[in-house]
Every structure is written in structure tokens, then in C-alpha cells.
């Protein structure tokens, strides 16, 4: 007789939504895995967790997490999450989305959420291109990379996401690759325990769509690039952390204390009502 064995983390997943839609060799599963590990290690109450995502492959993560979850329009995850966090600050609000969603169409929301220091935690799976729509150039596509819309090589300078996040005011900024699973998990844990706007970038392989046009046909080949190019350096200058084929600087870049928008707002509301003595 065959006994059904359930996965030790199955309670963190919405089983009705599995199997997932991701290609073999994709790094999104690793991101989800590390996120779940972090929740497990922190013994977080899933009833108080809201996972929000935008559009793109990684955007499906919201549906796979066994928590309250919302899959928004393209680019709007952070703006939606802002409404959730302000309406109920007791909720842990995590945005998991991609580089195109968060930094091209959603770039404005990202910088303003960071500036306000709203207590939303953002995990960005950066795969250097628009995977779901077939591999177009995006805001993180490296110079000279080949994509379906840069057949002659990319001539746009990519964003250095950790620099952008630090400059916009995030209280915690880190970058890891999907190779650094333990450090990534620790980083997500640290982020979940912090106040204010936090950002973790995960360099994630997309061999089927991005890799095969750029001489890395398998997940392993992409991971090999991450291994070769990455170096761990904590609290280095994020402005010097551009990603190149030769160098992927990873580590924590920012970890500062700053009072969150929602705390300031609710304190202000308290003060206003103290002062207001009506009749």
C-alpha cells in the first residue's frame, strides 16, 4: 500500500494552485522556498500575512502562498500593499514580484513607497528580462544582452536596483542570487523583523527565455555564472554594485533604523485626538 506523504512545508502552500507554472531551471521556486523557510523559522502566523504580487512569472507566487493573497494589475503591487498596510498595520504585507513589474511599469510606486518608508517588504526576483511575455528587454537587462526586442544587443543602461532602493530611502537593502539560499533566507528573516520599507533583490535564473539567448541554456549554466561572478561583501557602497557578466556583488547594503510611515501616521492620529477635546 502506498502511503501519501505530504511535504513538510505543504501547510505554507495553497495546494489547489500547485503545480506551479514555472519552467524547469527557473529560480522562482527557490525564492518561494526561501520565503517559506523564513516564515517557518520565525513561526509567523499565516492568518496575519498578506502576499501581494504584480504581473509576471514570479507574480504567481501570491497564489501559491497559503495566506491572504492578491495578484494585482501590472506594476501596482506596492501601491495596493500600501493601502493594505495603512488600513491594518497589524498585517505583515509582503510584495513578491519581478524586475519589470517593480521597476519599469511600477517604478514610481517603488521609489515613493521607499521614500515614505511604508512598512511593506519587497522581494524582487530579477531575471533580467520579461519572461512571461517571451523574453523582452527590461529595466535590468544588461548592456549588449540579447533579448527578443534587442536582437542586436541591448543599448539601454540597466538599473542597479540596490542603489536605487538605498537612494530612495529603504531601511534594509540586500542582494543575493538563488545560489545563496541560506543567506537569502536569513536576509528575508531579517527583513520581516524590521520596521519600514525593506528590499531584497534575488538574482534569479531564467534559462528557458533569457539564458538560451545569452549562452546559458540551462539553469545550471546560469547558476554557474552566479557562482563565478558573485562575491559576498556586506555594507559595501551600493552605487558601485552594478551587475556585469564578470561581477555580481551580493550581501547586505543597508540596514538602518527609521520610523515607519504607518507608525508616524497612527501616532499623529493619536495626537490629534488627544488635543481635540470636543464639547
Amino acid at each position: 500500500m502506498v502511503q501519501e506523504v505530504s511535504h513538510p512545508f505543504s501547510s505554507y502552500l495553497r495546494s489547489a494552485m500547485i503545480p506551479h507554472i514555472w519552467c524547469s531551471g527557473c529560480g522562482n521556486g527557490i525564492v518561494l522556498n526561501c520565503f517559506i523557510h523564513a516564515l517557518e523559522e520565525l513561526q509567523r502566523d499565516l492568518d496575519k500575512l498578506v502576499v501581494v504580487s504584480g504581473i509576471g512569472c514570479i507574480g504567481r507566487t501570491a497564489g501559491y502562498a497559503n495566506a491572504d493573497s492578491f495578484h494585482t494589475t501590472h506594476g501596482r503591487a506596492i501601491a495596493f500593499a500600501t493601502g493594505v498596510k495603512l488600513a491594518n498595520p497589524e498585517l505583515e504585507v509582503v510584495v513578491i514580484s519581478g524586475d519589470g513589474d517593480l521597476f519599469a511599469i511600477g517604478g514610481n510606486h517603488f521609489i515613493h513607497a521607499a521614500r515614505r518608508n511604508i512598512g511593506v517588504k519587497v522581494i524582487c526576483a530579477n531575471n533580467f528580462n520579461y519572461g512571461m511575455t517571451g523574453g523582452q528587454q527590461g529595466p535590468t537587462t544588461p548592456l549588449e544582452a540579447s533579448t527578443t526586442t534587442t536582437p542586436y544587443g541591448n543599448i539601454e543602461h540597466p538599473f542597479n536596483l540596490v542603489h536605487l532602493a538605498a537612494a530612495a530611502g529603504a531601511t534594509y537593502v540586500a542582494r543575493w542570487t538563488t545560489l545563496h539560499v541560506r543567506r537569502l533566507t536569513q536576509s528575508i528573516k531579517r527583513m520581516l523583523q524590521k520596521e519600514g520599507f525593506c528590499f531584497v533583490e534575488v538574482i534569479s535564473p531564467c534559462p528557458e527565455i533569457f539564458g538560451r539567448r545569452n549562452k546559458m541554456r540551462t539553469g545550471l549554466e546560469m547558476m554557474e555564472w552566479f557562482r563565478r561572478a558573485s562575491s559576498v561583501e556586506n555594507f559595501s557602497d551600493p552605487s558601485k554594485a552594478e551587475i556585469t557578466s564578470k561581477r555580481i556583488l551580493v550581501g547586505e547594503f543597508v540596514n538602518v533604523e527609521k520610523v515607519s510611515y504607518e507608525r508616524l501616521l497612527h501616532e499623529k492620529i493619536g495626537q490629534i485626538n488627544e488635543k481635540k477635546i470636543v464639547w
Binding site: V50, V52, F70, T72, T73, G75, R76, A79, F80, A81, T82, G83, V84, K85, L86, A87, N88, L91, N108, H109, H112, L265, K268, I269, I272, N273, K276
Partner: peptide, 28 residues
């Protein structure tokens, strides 16, 4: 604020509408 409610000026109207949906799903 006098009613314990939230006022936020967002970065644009796209974000405003998204935040409204988020707040409504969070119960307000």
C-alpha cells in the same frame, strides 16, 4: 484623522486607486 481614518496622498492616480482597493480588502 479625527475619526481614526487614513488619508494618504499617493504618487499618482494609478497608485491612489490601487491603494483604495488594498484598503478595502483590508476591511475599510
Amino acid at each position: 484623522p479625527e475619526f481614526g481614518g487614513i488619508y494618504i496622498q499617493m504618487e499618482d492616480e494609478i497608485g491612489s486607486m490601487a491603494a483604495v482597493i488594498g484598503a478595502s480588502y483590508a476591511g475599510l
